[in-house]
């Protein structure tokens, strides 16, 4: 059972206090988008074995969303960061690079 730190309230909490929200950093495509763009937004997911960026909500706590960079194979957590970002912040990317050697 995962243990993730909610960056909004600073607590490391167990999975039962959280609600998962799927892949992070999706770009919304609205009414003027092409079928391909809309498909990408609605349906196509990386489902990575390895480094994965995902959405979590601190459902039983502060109620806020946050994002986590996690390894789906080893369950390693590279870090959590606020939901108000369109891409992983530099310090998270650095940490992933440091730990994966990539």
């Amino acid at each position: 059972m995962l243990l993730l730190t909610c960056p909004n309230c600073g607590l490391a909490v167990e999975e039962t206090e959280l609600a998962p929200g799927g892949e992070a950093h999706l770009k919304r495509f609205g009414p003027d988008s092409t079928a391909e763009q809309f498909e990408e937004y609605m349906f196509l997911r990386d489902n990575a074995k390895g480094v994965h960026f995902e959405r979590w909500r601190h459902a039983y706590g502060c109620g806020k969303w946050f994002l986590a960079a996690r390894n789906t194979a080893t369950l390693e957590v590279y870090g959590t960061y606020p939901a108000r970002t369109t891409e992983p912040p530099q310090h998270i990317r650095d940490e992933i690079a440091r730990r994966t050697g990539a």
């Binding site: 929200g21 919304r28 959405r55 459902a59 109620g63 806020k64 969303w65 939901a83 108000r84």
Partner: peptide, 13 residues
């Protein structure tokens, strides 16, 4: 309520 907060926190912040 969660749906509303999702859009406010994660898309139109």
């Amino acid at each position: 309520h969660v749906w509303m907060e999702d859009w406010l926190q994660c898309e139109w912040w």
